[in-house]
Nucleic acid binder design. Structure first.
Length: 340
DNA sequence: CATTCCCA
DNA sequence: TGGGAATGG
């Protein structure tokens, strides 16, 4: 997913508290997808309510969001619009992977291999329109604003970040750097525990931040050149060029200046090059939004989560209390700092 | 993923 | 007390 730019960007470890008091724009699709793939039972099945509706995404969104708010982060969310024409190939490929994983999940279950079952189940994750509607509903109850992107959510979030409407974009993907975000925050989870792929080892994944300007200056590239590097490697919108990874792509763009020169020198071609560049450099975004934070509707949340989706009332009330207490402690701290 | 449970 | 296992819906 996204472009593999990790190896060439400067990714620095940080803390949640680092972002206290800042407006953070969350890539909703990215975060919800993570919840959907990770909040599962041992055999890989999703959490569901008594009417068989999936609740894993709400579970994750509720706890994660409340926790981050409790740490003083000001959250706003961006939802994807319709995908770009050139993304369809990737989306189809992903769908095929999911179908295959579904079968492998079933096989693993029959063999009693729970480890593999869970891992395959994760790969079948698919965000439905209903899940997205429910997520937006929960956000409304939490008093958090969300923006509907015309197309790519990451493009919209990066645009807003660039304009100064938010401090950073929250996403696991590195694409936001290409879309022009100033800062990208990753692993914004409280526990920071992440499973190593294909291993049964859990490692601590600390929050990370990428400073776009710092990374670009360090590489001696403009954002346009960075986009060219990405297009050589391959993005969600193009397959890239065989045997060219981050390191080689970087070397080539440095040597030749831009992708045209690279392709010329290598006798290669990338179809719809200008269109591809435009996706990142002149992205389809909107300025027709307002970020407006409201009060949390505790009663509404209990109604929605507990009565509607079977969450335990006591559990939700306890979390809301904890949040309130943390908030008042933060407020007290702020007051204290004013009076020395 | 985040919390709770449970036992050393 | 605390960290792995179980649970959540």
């Amino acid at each position: 997913m996204g472009v593999n730019l990790r190896d060439i960007l400067i990714v620095e470890n940080t803390t949640i508290q680092r972002f206290a008091g800042q407006i953070m724009l969350v890539d909703s699709h990215n975060i919800l997808y993570q919840f959907l793939s990770s909040i599962r039972q041992a055999d890989g099945t999703l959490l569901r309510d008594s009417r068989n509706r999936v609740t894993s995404h709400l579970n994750g969104l509720f706890y994660r969001t409340l926790n981050l708010m409790g740490e003083g982060l000001t959250l706003a969310f961006v939802f994807d619009g319709s995908p770009h024409r050139l993304k369809h190939q990737t989306l189809r490929a992903r769908m095929a992977v999911k179908e295959k994983a579904k079968e492998e999940w079933k096989v693993a279950l029959e063999k009693g291999d729970m480890e593999r079952a869970r891992s395959k189940a994760r790969q079948t994750s698919r965000l439905t329109k209903e899940m997205l509607d429910e997520a937006r509903h929960l956000l409304r109850l939490m008093g958090l604003p969300y923006v509907q992107a015309p197309s790519e959510g990451e493009a919209q979030a990066s645009h807003m970040n660039r304009k100064g409407d938010a401090y950073a974009v929250v996403s696991q993907d590195f694409d936001s750097i290409l879309f022009g975000a100033k800062y990208v925050a990753r692993n914004l989870a409280l526990s920071g525990r992440r499973k190593l792929p294909d291993k049964r080892v859990w490692v601590n994944a600390p929050p990370e931040m990428i400073d776009a300007r710092q990374s670009l200056e360090n590489l001696g590239l403009t954002r346009g050149q960075m986009v060219d590097v990405a297009l050589l490697i391959g993005t969600d919108f193009n397959p890239g060029i065989k045997r060219i990874g981050p390191k080689t792509a970087l070397k080539l763009i440095r040597k030749h200046g831009d992708i045209e020169a690279v392709l010329e020198a290598k006798g290669l071609e990338i179809p719809e090059l200008e269109e591809l560049r435009g996706i990142f450099l002149c992205p389809q975004v909107t300025d027709d939004y307002t970020l407006r934070w409201g009060d949390m509707d505790g009663e509404g949340m209990i109604e929605f989560l507990c009565e509607e989706h079977d969450f335990s009332r006591g559990r939700i009330e306890r979390e809301l209390d904890k949040y309130t207490i943390r908030q008042s402690k933060r407020a007290q701290k702020t007051l204290d700092s004013f009076f020395g």
